[in-house]
Amino acid sequence: MRKLIYYELLKIATKPRSYIGFAVITAIVLLLETAMYIDGQTYIEFITQSLEESFDIEGKFLNGNLMCFIILQTLIIQMPLLVALVTGDTISGEAAQGTLRLLLTKPYTRAQILWAKITAGSIYLLLLLIWLGILALGLGLLIFGKGDLVVLKTEQVIILRENDILWRFMLSFVIAFISLQVVASLSLLLSCFTDNSIGPIIISMAIIILFTIIGTLDIPLFDHIKFFLFTTHMIVWRNLFDNPLDFNLIFTSVGILIGHIFVFNALAFYYFKRKDIQS
């Protein structure tokens, strides 16, 4: 099994496509950090102008922690695509290229092969998030320094003290991992159904975009279904930056996300074990 995982990782590591995610993350983070370095103060003044009507603000809004938060907030929209780009290709890509039939003639059960692919995909996702963490938080702190975190919500400003932030970021990366694992599981499931490499990636993104639109629109009809959409819960990491924390909400959302992972993977296992390889 370890051998299977090792070779799945080798395939991911040697495939040029796998580095698109790292390149995009690097580009976006560097772009945002450069822009904020040059013009961040204007941006901060723009969003805090209503507060500054009543108060002077003492202390530094723009710091590494805020940068990391802004980057996480921005990238949560792009990350699913970057993840699906690799995980959506795991089965269908091999089917399209013809190596799946060769792989499945090897003396491993299909469940083992799928499990190895899921594990390798998760490790890839983890590395992607670690890279994001290093760039967003590490580089952010290096360039912009430490400081309290200002979380700007639609109708609230939350200021978290410097010593109260790191654990929140760590946990939010864990939740981001779980959220993106849902995307990985979904694209892997779709990948089992088709022999074309691009289809599952596009369908995964289409589902995410559709669900996000439903989640964004304040239409009463959608209110009833929003709770069941995984995209609604994918942004629960932001609730880790609430004060006080609503653990009930966070646990519920994490539970729903894990439920999605379980269902998507279970369906993938069910279908993949029975799939006739005709490609």
């Binding site: 040029p16 290229q97 039939r101």
Partner: peptide, 10 residues
């Protein structure tokens, strides 16, 4: 089976 396909980038 059918044709010999491999990982082209390896």
């Amino acid at each position: 089976i059918e044709k010999p396909d491999f990982y082209p980038w390896l």
